[in-house]
């Protein structure tokens, strides 16, 4: 009976220890009145620039074919990193009136207006990337990959799977479509399946990690924007499949600081999402089995010695 109780309590303890969610990093708080002002201001833009507004729009001088390409999903936008930013913060003067100014695109505040320091670092990395070196640098802006109305930074996302889905979609928006690829490159679109034939359990890897885990150099600060070509990309399995996994500096970077060793697992924040051979070992189990192995070897060695001594004694006794 006591043994059953112990097992039940051990199971409960294990569940409690292992089911605690990893805390999501909170965004900076915003005063409710400021938020309301932003939402009211944005609502004016969305009268035309949303699916609902577009459908009911009957405004003279509106080119609906053109407008269709400039719709914003409010739900997605508010969940994005810029979700609490006023439209007019980026779409400045020329957008305040309708019709918008003829040169309205020139009046957009680009990313570097706010993200100046980050932009300088990223631009240096990007200049080294395959996209810049292939001579198609001018085809890329930040928003080629990071749609500012949609993009979420990994640190604010709940699940690494969501980060993987979002970030891989950036790459696949060109690398998964001949039509989009043709718009940025004259080369034939690389066959991703053929190029990744060396990668075991390919679908599993593609769902569990991002293209950039292998196609960027390891950076101890933020993810590098130096996208590496196939020949320079990481191909050593142990880069991820080891206790010192580089996933700690990449996909799980924002969780490492939250990590507390859970029932002895190395890289337990990874184990929450994926069992990664070599990277998610349990030190207690390894230690227990190691001690067991040592005892077995000790018994064998001891028995061997006793046999040798016994045989020697017997041979002496028998003359």
């Amino acid at each position: 009976m006591a043994a059953i109780k112990t097992v039940i309590w051990a199971a409960i303890g294990l569940v409690l220890l292992t089911t605690s969610a990893i805390a999501q990093i909170e965004r900076k708080p915003i005063a409710p009145e400021d938020l309301k002002n932003i939402q009211d201001s944005n609502a004016k833009c969305l009268e035309c620039h949303s699916e609902g507004g577009f459908d009911t729009l009957n405004r003279e001088g509106v080119d609906k074919d053109k407008l269709r390409d400039h719709l914003v999903d409010l739900g997605v936008y508010e969940g994005s990193n810029h979700g609490r930013v006023e439209c007019k913060a980026c779409h400045v003067k020329g957008f305040e009136e309708f019709p918008h100014a003829a040169d309205d695109k020139k009046q957009i505040n680009w990313c570097d207006e706010c993200h100046t320091r980050k932009f300088l670092r990223i631009e240096m990395q990007f200049d080294e990337s395959v996209h810049a070196k292939e001579g198609i640098k001018e085809k890329f802006t930040c928003s080629t990959c990071h749609d500012p109305h949609v993009f979420q930074a990994a640190k604010y996302m709940n699940s690494p799977r969501d980060v993987v889905r979002q970030d891989n979609d950036f790459c696949l928006s060109c690398h998964g479509s001949d039509q989009s690829f043709e718009q940025v490159s004259k080369e034939a679109r690389p066959d991703l399946v053929e190029n990744h034939e060396w990668l075991p359990n390919r679908p599993l890897h593609w769902n569990a990690v991002r293209c950039v885990e292998c196609h960027t150099p390891v950076s101890k600060k933020v993810m590098s924007h130096e996208i590496l070509p196939a020949e320079k990309a990481e191909k050593r399995c142990v880069a991820c499949h080891s206790a010192d996994s580089t996933l700690r500096l990449r996909l799980y970077k924002h969780m490492v600081s939250e990590e507390r060793s859970r029932v002895g697992f190395v890289n337990s924040m990874i184990l929450n999402e994926a069992y990664v051979i070599g990277a998610t070992r349990n030190v207690y189990l390894d230690l227990a089995l190691g001690i067991f192995a040592a005892v077995v070897v000790f018994i064998i060695v001891l028995h061997s010695i006793l046999r040798i001594i016994a045989a020697w004694v017997r041979s002496r006794r028998n003359g």
Partner: peptide
């Protein structure tokens, strides 16, 4: 499973059973 990837129990069972067989091999050889 219990907040961990569902492959974990399979992996642990495989590891422990594989270890058991390794110990058997040592004993068997001796």
């Amino acid at each position: 499973l219990f907040g961990f990837d569902g492959l974990l129990p399979i992996a642990v069972l495989h590891y422990v059973a594989g270890f058991g067989l390794t110990m058997f091999l040592l004993g068997h050889l001796y």
